[in-house]
Nucleic acid binder design. Structure first.
Lengths: 211, 211
DNA sequence: ATGTTATCTAAACGCTGTCCAGATAGGACC
DNA sequence: GGTCCTATCTGGACAGCGTTTAGATAACAT
């Protein structure tokens, strides 16, 4: 009576869960979010429409797996930006720019990531443990002195995260085009917006004025 | 040969366009965005599934009409907050809080509003002319001195708008619950996050340091 | 070799957005 | 008032969707 472990062993197909997630990401990249149906994913993976149900409870759970990979990729992108920042002064801004650029470069994936979060009214736990959100908090903490309370740190992280997300969702909006051009490119535009949030500069001094 | 003007005259039904938009909003409020199908709207309005096509090109155009009313309602909410702000000092923060509260109180409508915007990669023109976005810019402008350039003003408005939107999309996230409690309520939490964005305080002095 | 069980297919259900042919009814013109 | 036009609405259809069910198949344990 060997217990039926939910193992990822290759059976008929080989590794269908993997293949399905890959197929989904391929469709997302080439045809966008509206083309991402369960049937289309199955078609792309070369199986029947019902096959995915042996690996995922429903469509949402497949999208969750896709989103999980998205968050992991975001982790990596932020870590890279953090490591490459020339100096501590603009480390947080660089992370912010990297965040928005990730969303700009993977718009469909980014949408799936936040669709999942909104449906559950929760960011994935992944982020808190050692992920992107944690990186932002650590970066802010490193720039703060010891007068900054835990609550302030958390509030600042939330503020930074929300600002990044807001900008990420709107970066492609055509209303911003003239401004981007006036500032000499998207990167300059992003840095300028982040700097106008003030908070990023504020923490340079290691001082947080809550009033 | 009287030209067939696209007039909103009551024909068989009376004013089906109106009735459809109202039906859609009713469904949004009571059953959420996932229940909002064209057929459900037609059902709610008491007409056949094909009837809406004489008033809207497709489902997206009906949603656009719904979104338009949403943006108008947001205009009013921000105007109210702006008028009621006790002093100039926290006028911008009050507007920000009102923005997020609007999204929290009308989550389904807010979602339709931004779904439409994202699909067109553009905020509605409505906002620029005399709407909510314009109100934010005017409020910031009123707090700035004359050393602030037009570009700075635009950047600050974008920053504020994005921060508000980011917070609006995440305000319901369960990760923030403990912090809300620690600060004694949602309103206090919102004000605290906005204040940690720094920018709001920054403009109090009427000085904008771009470097 | 046998039996068990995970895996996959084929077919079906009810739902969706959208289109078409035909019925109907309001307004314009004589 | 009668006639025509055209906007409006219905019923029926189509393809596609997410999901379920029953049955075939193939890998594994014994």
């Amino acid at each position: 009576m060997n217990k039926p472990v939910p193992d990822p062993r290759p059976y008929h197909h080989g590794d269908l869960s993997r293949a399905l997630v890959d197929a989904a990401r391929r469709i997302l990249e080439t045809q966008g979010p509206t083309a991402l149906s369960l049937r289309a994913v199955a078609r792309e993976a070369g199986v029947s429409p019902a096959a995915p149900y042996h690996h995922f409870k429903d469509k949402d759970q497949l999208l969750e797996a896709v989103a999980h990979e998205g968050w992991t990729a975001l982790d990596a992108a932020l870590a890279k930006a953090r490591a490459e920042a020339k100096n501590a002064r603009d480390r947080l801004t660089s992370i912010g720019v990297a965040y928005v650029c990730f969303a700009r470069d993977n718009p469909a994936l980014y949408r799936v990531m936040y669709d999942g979060a909104r449906n559950k009214d929760s960011l994935p736990e992944q982020l808190k443990d050692d992920g992107a959100y944690c990186q932002v908090r650590n970066t802010i903490a490193a720039q703060s002195d010891d007068t900054v309370t835990d609550i302030d740190l958390e509030l600042a992280t939330i503020a930074a995260w929300c600002a990044g997300h807001g900008l990420a969702e709107m970066i492609g909006f055509k209303q911003f085009e003239p401004l981007k051009q006036a500032l000499g490119g998207e990167q300059a535009f992003l840095r300028a917006v982040f700097e106008h949030l003030g908070m990023f500069a504020k923490y340079d001094h290691g001082v947080l004025q809550t009033d």
